[in-house]
Amino acid sequence: MTEPTIPPLRTSARYRPGALEYLALGLIVLVIGQRWLVDLFDIPALQTGATVFVAIMIQATPFLLLGVVLSGAIAAFVPASFWRRVLPKNNALAVPVAGAAGALIPGCECASVPVANGLMARGVTPAAALAFLLSAPAINPIVMVSTFVAFPGEPELVLARFVASLLTAVVMGWLWLRFGKGEWLRIGPRTHLIGSSSFHTFRLTATHDFLHAGGYLVIGAFAAAAINVLVPPAVMNTVAENPFLAIGAMAALAILLSICSEADAFIAASFTEFSSTAKLTFMVIGPMVDLKLISLQAGTFGRAFAVRFAPTTVAIGIAASLIVGWVLLT
């Protein structure tokens, strides 16, 4: 090992424009071109897309912040030994415990990605952290209440949602335990996020996670806004006729529309032509896999993880919805 070399202090640095200068220049150009930009967006489809994009960002920002504040607090204030004490030693048992713990934390799916990342960084077994990642946005009290409100007179659908979501999360955790490989998962080295004090560590972690995940949220929100404008709602009604096509279509729609788990029950309820099981599939898949989540997960855990995790979750989620729907909804 060689000693790290400290670069010689330069006395007269040659001027090179950097990120800050480009940022300033870009902003000046955009402000000058503002009139032209507004004219460009004077097309209903583009305007609708822009509104949906900003709406998803505005809606998700408080939840993403909640998530990064929690992940920062986990990094700074919760000792790693805490998780060893609360979670069962046996990993196969830790998975359902972590999955059920998802019912306690009221948050959207955007919050759960940085939290799961923080848990893994603190030594929680990835399988348990992933079960929590999937279950937290799907079965928390706010989501359960909003589902109850969206489907008046159908409390069995609330129960079905809870059971099918938890089942999917736990099965995914166990699958990871059995088949998952550590190298698929990128848990970023976090040594550079250790500050001079607990509060400093908290602030560095939260800021870093927000900036990092926020960019991926932008990609997801952008894709969802584009889909919102490009896919005519009329296509849906023709698909609803065929029960098998309907379930696939509802799963695809949950992925493409990327609606917050706290609102998706109202959307599911608006698909009046679809069967209860198809609506259940929509509500099970939506909080676990959608465009903004795939983007967030790829950014946080790496692409190798996302390409394996997302399709498997969809398959397990559909299977769980079919089984639970068959038992509880018919």
Binding site: L30, V38, Q47, L211, G299
Partner: peptide
């Protein structure tokens, strides 16, 4: 880390276009 730059998109949309 480049992804953080994308957070400027909603900022620009809000200040310049105000959908």
């Amino acid at each position: 880390a480049w992804s953080s730059w994308l957070l400027l998109l909603p900022v620009l949309a809000i200040f310049l276009i105000a959908p």
